[in-house]
């Protein structure tokens, strides 16, 4: 949905590094190298990044604004 605040396994705070990760990977950088540069060493934390899908952006598309609701 949205990046979890902490790693499920070890509890390291990872959410603060998501923006940087997303930006670098979008540029075409190798995710493995980005994670190394962010200091994410353990594989439990690394999978949190690699397996996350921002589904919240998909559900946001279906948000009906109150103003538009009045028009239709």
């Amino acid at each position: 949905m949205i990046i979890p605040v902490r790693c499920f396994t070890c509890g390291k705070v990872i959410a603060d590094k998501w923006d940087e990760f997303k930006k670098e990977v979008a540029k075409g950088e190798n995710p493995s190298k980005v994670l190394d540069s962010l200091g994410i060493k353990r594989y439990c934390c690394r999978r949190m990044f690699l397996s996350n899908v921002e589904l919240i952006e998909e559900s946001l598309k279906f948000y009906v604004r109150p103003k538009e609701e009045g028009k239709t």
Partner: peptide, 14 residues
């Protein structure tokens, strides 16, 4: 302790 943790993502007006 950390100011960069996203809490939620919202659309205009939410």
């Amino acid at each position: 302790a950390n100011n960069n943790i996203p809490i939620a993502e919202m659309n205009a007006g939410q």
